[in-house]
Write a protein that binds this DNA or RNA. Sequence first.
DNA 1: CTGAAAGCGCTTACAG
DNA 2: CTGAAAGCGCTTACAG
Lengths: 352, 352
Amino acid sequence: MARTTAGAAGARPTIRDIARVAGVSKASVSYALNDLPGVSAETRARIRATATELGWRPSAAARSLSRARAGAVGLAVARDLRLLEEEPYYMRFIAGMEGVLAREGLSLLLSVVPDVDAAVEVLRDWWGERRVDGVVLTDLRVDDPRVTLVAELGIPCAVRIGLDDRLPTGGRLAASLDPERQAFDAVVEHLLAQGHRRLARVSGPREFLHTRRRDVAWDTVTRSALGRAAPVVVADYTSEGGLAATRTLLARPERPTAVVFDNDVMAAAVVAEREALGVRVPEDLAVVAGEDSMLCRLASPAISCLQRDIVADGARSAEVLLEVVLDRVGPTRVSEAHRFVVRGTTAARAPG
Amino acid sequence: MARTTAGAAGARPTIRDIARVAGVSKASVSYALNDLPGVSAETRARIRATATELGWRPSAAARSLSRARAGAVGLAVARDLRLLEEEPYYMRFIAGMEGVLAREGLSLLLSVVPDVDAAVEVLRDWWGERRVDGVVLTDLRVDDPRVTLVAELGIPCAVRIGLDDRLPTGGRLAASLDPERQAFDAVVEHLLAQGHRRLARVSGPREFLHTRRRDVAWDTVTRSALGRAAPVVVADYTSEGGLAATRTLLARPERPTAVVFDNDVMAAAVVAEREALGVRVPEDLAVVAGEDSMLCRLASPAISCLQRDIVADGARSAEVLLEVVLDRVGPTRVSEAHRFVVRGTTAARAPG
DNA sequence: CTGAAAGCGCTTACAG
DNA sequence: CTGAAAGCGCTTACAG
């Protein structure tokens, strides 16, 4: 009805149609529509009007072929589905990327695979077929094969790293900085103020680079506050793993009075199973979660936790990626630090 | 090192290179690599070997342009970020789609936007630029503008619908069937067996088609079990909304002894705030969640709930979409029914 | 400021 | 079975 020329669905107008209708050459159409010099103001306006009238949209494939740009970036999430189950993280991260990408007319390709090796294959395919102009890597592992790959193939890539992390040089790697180094400062300060002296931490798997970052932060801050580094038990982010690690800690002679968990699930599991563990929370055991979520908010007592702006993190990652992709050199983006949110699991207690 | 001919990063080999090296025409290369007739077995093998040796990968853009296929499908998630926060749903759904798409060499484009109107714009862009060959729509609304759009533009599209839902005819819509009609059968039967007679439900927003489906199911099953339809209070999937709706129900003369919530967050909020609400769970109030999650498992008591295989749902959706896209006509895929998982919030009680 | 032409990397009838 | 050629819808030097 409205569309006069396009006709039935499927009959996409091309710049050739616009050129014919507007009485100019294809080249002029291209210049006009891409805001390039080479056409007079009137001609440009006429061409624009014609394009609108015909309902023209550029063909992504044709553009991609002639510009040698995919017009898309990829996010390959490498994470066990079991762990993904309670990960509100990614949808928020993606929503954050979205805003930045939309501004540049870029699409987002997403792949969710169980491990880094599968992710490497996805990256190889994406880049081999030039489906993406660059990729965002999350959940970096120690000696991550994805990082090796992107460096080798020269894939523009954005990662989140800590101040002290070393990345392979060369390649087209951009980083947004994760100021995780200060993550535990407020936590430990708060726990000390509450009278706690025997602190412990239940960490995520050591393969993750951010676990290592937290290791360093934990070591530094507890050493400076207590004279020696407080203990860490490694777990796997699952409720079972968190419970097992906590049992280990509670069985020690130097039984901790406060435990900091690297994620929300482990902390919530401990709070839920406090009776089975034989502790009152927070009276016998203060609990802090390394990530916030509904699990923390709906636990009773509600769980004190570290909080951060994940949507903003996604935006930061997209921004630094675009800079490498577009060969603009921009400053590294530093994300906001974690905020420590005090809730019921670290309420005041008598010094033990 | 290994790659002998490709040279520096960026020097992608094309079928022209293969043709030159193998001493054949580009056409023969295309035939050989696409398993089409027109080349002898030996030639095909030689061409294949050359392609492998050169590290050739098809250019997605070139293929897309000449085949008039994008080689990708899109998923436009239209959901308020606030509600998305606790949605492990999508990552699992996407992982399910992934397996099916990978088999056909298709990529997944993802967009996360706050509402259906924004989603309509995304769909318009994707289809206008032919970035996708089809789309999957989730969280269908009543009179969903996205459905109108895909029908109008003839975008191949997969949706999940109930047995009784009507969809616009025409267009290229495929549906996988959601057997939600039986969702409440086991729940109500179980609650009756526990002695409950005053049941109620706290639903999700009425704009969602699946809320309407549950409305019908609830009406049918409670009417047949109790002689009249049990009451429903509409809420918004948030913890605050769930609590408010529950307060409304508890204030009624016909105060319910069992409440079924359309999602996990509302049920978990009520269990967490049971003291503030002045009820014991399950003694005064049995609670059932319409979706399972860690929130249900870590609540105390753990929350009885409906459970389903979301990864499988994602796979079903991708399958039916591929059938419309590839113009194969296949049977509608029916998903598995919900399972009712009994946990602590519906433990045995004395008849009220 | 404008137009004719070549090119991006594939696919696909059409002749041999 | 094989090759030369046109085409997909854009972009971009290069002449006028």
